[in-house]
C-alpha cells in the first residue's frame, strides 16, 4: 500500500514537471510575447523596453529555469492586468469553482446512481427506459446551448433563478444543472452496465448458492464491485469539471477559475494564464491521486499490487 502510494506520488510529480514545461513552451510557440502583450501601436523602443522589464530578451533556457524555479514554489509572477501575484488571483477564484463543480457532481450522482442501479437490476423497466433516455440527452445535448435555453426559460421567462452571478443561494442551480448533466448521463450508463455485468458474474451465482438474502447479495457483493469502475470515472469527471467549466462559468458570469481563464486569455495576461494552467494541473493530479487511493481501498488487487 505504501509502495503503491509512493509510486503514484512520484508519477504525479513527474507529470507536473511535464505540465510546467509544456505550459512554458506552448505560450512561447504562440508568438513573440512582447508583441502579443503590447498594444499594436507600440514603438520598437517600447517593445524593447518591455522585453527588458519582462526578461524576454534573456536566453530561453534562462527564462525557463526562472519560470520553473518560481512555479515550484508557487510564484508565477504578477498578473499583467491586475498587477498583483497571479497565484493569489487564482486562489481567490477557487472557492467559487469548487462550489459549482461540487454541487454539479452531487446533483449528478444523486440522480445518476439510483437510476443506474434500478436500470441495471430491472433492464427494460420504466425507470430504466426513462433513465437511458435522460442519459442519452445529457451526454448529447451541447451544454453551452442548454445553458442559454435554461437562462431563457428558468431565469427570463419563469424568473425562478438568477441568470448570472453568485450572489444568491440559488444562483448555483442553473449552472450546476447544466454542468452536471453530461456527467449524470455518463454515470447512469456506467452504473447500469456495471450492475448488469457484475450480476452475471459467477461469484454472484455462488452468493445465491449460499442461500444469502438478495438484499445482502446486492449490498455486499454487487455494489462494492460496481463502485470500482464508478470511482475512477467520478474522479476524472470531477477534475474535468474543476478545470473545464470555462464556458459554463462565462455564460453564467460565475466568478470562478473558468471565467478567469476566459478573461486572462482575452487580456493576454501570460503570467496569469500560466498560473491557472499549472494550478489546474495540480488540482487534477491531486484528485487523481485521491481517486487511486480510494480505488486501492476498495480493491485489494490494487492494494497488494497483483497484476
Amino acid at each position: 500500500m505504501q509502495r503503491y502510494f509512493i509510486s503514484r506520488l512520484g508519477q504525479s510529480a513527474l507529470l507536473l514537471i511535464g505540465v510546467i514545461i509544456l505550459v512554458f513552451f506552448m505560450v512561447r510557440v504562440t508568438g513573440d510575447p512582447a508583441r502579443l502583450m503590447m498594444p499594436r501601436e507600440a514603438s520598437a523602443e517600447d517593445l524593447e523596453a518591455f522585453r527588458e522589464v519582462m526578461g524576454f530578451n534573456r536566453p530561453l533556457y534562462v527564462q525557463f529555469l526562472d519560470f520553473f524555479s518560481g512555479a515550484i514554489v508557487g510564484d508565477f509572477g504578477d498578473s499583467l492586468h491586475f498587477k498583483t501575484p497571479a497565484l493569489q488571483l487564482v486562489l481567490e477564484r477557487l472557492p467559487a469553482t469548487v462550489h459549482l463543480a461540487g454541487i454539479a457532481l452531487i446533483f449528478a450522482l444523486i440522480i445518476a446512481i439510483p437510476i443506474g442501479l434500478i436500470g441495471g437490476f430491472n433492464p427494460g423497466s420504466v425507470v430504466d427506459t426513462l433513465g437511458r433516455g435522460l442519459a442519452l440527452a445529457g451526454q448529447s445535448i451541447p451544454n453551452f446551448w442548454l445553458a442559454l435555453i435554461f437562462i431563457l426559460f428558468f431565469a427570463v421567462r419563469l424568473r425562478w433563478f438568477p441568470s448570472f452571478g453568485r450572489d444568491e443561494w440559488h444562483s448555483v442551480v442553473l449552472p450546476a444543472t447544466v454542468l452536471g448533466l453530461p456527467v449524470m448521463g455518463q454515470i447512469v450508463r456506467l452504473t447500469r452496465s456495471a450492475v448488469l455485468e457484475i450480476r452475471g458474474e459467477d461469484f454472484i451465482r455462488t452468493a445465491y448458492s449460499k442461500g444469502l438474502e438478495p438484499r445482502t447479495i446486492y449490498i455486499k457483493h454487487v455494489f462494492r464491485n460496481v463502485a470500482i469502475p464508478l470511482i475512477s470515472v467520478i474522479g476524472v469527471q470531477f477534475g474535468y469539471m474543476l478545470g473545464g467549466s470555462i464556458y459554463i462559468e462565462t455564460i453564467f458570469s460565475w466568478p470562478g477559475m473558468g471565467q478567469l481563464i476566459e478573461q486572462s486569455i482575452g487580456w493576454r495576461d501570460f503570467p496569469l494564464i500560466q498560473a491557472i494552467a499549472v494550478f489546474t494541473s495540480v488540482v487534477v493530479l491531486g484528485l487523481n491521486l485521491i481517486t487511486d487511493l480510494t480505488y486501492a481501498f476498495i480493491d485489494p488487487r490494487i492494494r497488494y499490487g497483483s497484476s
Binding site: R205, T206, S209
Partner: peptide, 26 residues
C-alpha cells in the same frame, strides 16, 4: 424456504474457482 436449503442443507461447488469467488472480499 429455498434459501434456507441452499448453502444450508445443500452445498455447491462450481467449475471455475477463479470466477466463483468475489475478488474484493477476503
Amino acid at each position: 424456504e429455498l434459501r434456507n436449503v441452499r448453502g444450508g442443507q445443500i452445498g455447491f461447488v462450481f467449475q471455475d474457482p477463479i470466477s466463483t469467488l468475489n475478488p474484493i472480499m477476503t
